[in-house]
Amino acid sequence: MILGIGTDLANIERIQNTLDRFGDRFRNRVFTEVEQRKAERRTDVAGTYAKRWAAKEACSKALGTGLRMGISWKDMAVSNLPTGQPVMAVTGWAADRLAKMTPDGHEAIIHVTLTDDHPWAQAFVVIEARPVAAAQGMS
């Protein structure tokens, strides 16, 4: 079952201007070390940050809160599988919120997709609850 859906559209040029103006102060407030390392290795640094910004906004919407109620930017972190597929991990308040949203007997799966076409970066997040398989050999 679907627990939440969120989307966000971020302007890459706005993120670039914010990086130019606030630099590390902005990076360290919003992005984890892993996200920063990923972005700084890319040719399109601002585009990489913009996609992750959009993903965090989309995730907060899927959690049903937006960026209020105690959620922190770093409570939501985007990384990539070896295949390149983006994945979202939540910690802190976001993880607590996710646990409260997830029905008993289910596990939450966060799906995320990212795209960009200068000057726009976009993210979609879908939070799914899947039934947990009963332990084998138990009756």
Rank of each mutant, 00 (worst) to 15 (best):
G105M: 12
A10M: 13
M76T: 05
A62P: 05
T102M: 04
Y49S: 13
F31L: 07
G137E: 15
A123G: 07
A77I: 06
V30Y: 00
E40A: 06
R42C: 07
A99V: 08
L114V: 00
K38C: 12
G66D: 05
T48F: 03
F124G: 03
A50K: 03
T7G: 05
A54I: 09
S60P: 07
T65D: 02
R41C: 08
T7C: 10
I71K: 03
D117F: 10
R68Y: 07
R37M: 09
A89R: 14
D116W: 04
L63I: 06
D44P: 02
T91D: 06
A77P: 00
K61C: 08
A135P: 03
V30L: 02
W53R: 10
A95F: 05
E40H: 07
R25W: 00
I71N: 13
V30S: 01
V125G: 01
T115R: 02
R29H: 10
A123L: 03
V125T: 09
Q85G: 01
Q36C: 15
G66V: 03
Q16R: 15
I71D: 03
R25C: 04
M76F: 00
F22S: 15
A50Q: 10
R14Y: 04
D75A: 03
K61F: 07
A135E: 13
A94V: 00
F124N: 11
N17R: 15
A108V: 04
E128Q: 11
T18Y: 12
L19E: 05
K51Y: 01
F22H: 15
A134C: 05
I127N: 12
A62R: 04
C59N: 05
I2C: 09
T18I: 14
T32E: 03
I71Q: 04
V45R: 13
L9V: 10
T113E: 12
A55S: 01
E35V: 06
G66L: 02
K100E: 15
F124R: 04
R97Q: 11
D20F: 04
V45W: 06
F22W: 15
N17S: 13
M88H: 06
R14G: 02
A89I: 08
A135M: 09
Q122N: 15
G47S: 04
A133Y: 07
S72F: 07
R68N: 13
D96Y: 10
V34P: 08
R68G: 11
G6S: 06
H111E: 12
P82F: 13
A108H: 05
S139G: 12
D116I: 01
F124T: 14
A94W: 01
W120T: 10
L19S: 04
H118V: 14
C59M: 14
V78Y: 10
W53M: 08
R21S: 14
A54L: 01
I127S: 10
W93D: 02
T48R: 09
M1L: 12
V132M: 14
T18S: 14
D96H: 10
D44A: 15
L67P: 01
K56A: 00
T43E: 11
Q122F: 14
S79M: 09
A99Q: 11
E40K: 08
T65E: 08
F124I: 06
G4V: 02
V132R: 15
N11D: 12
P119C: 09
G105V: 06
D104Y: 12
R25N: 12
Q122L: 14
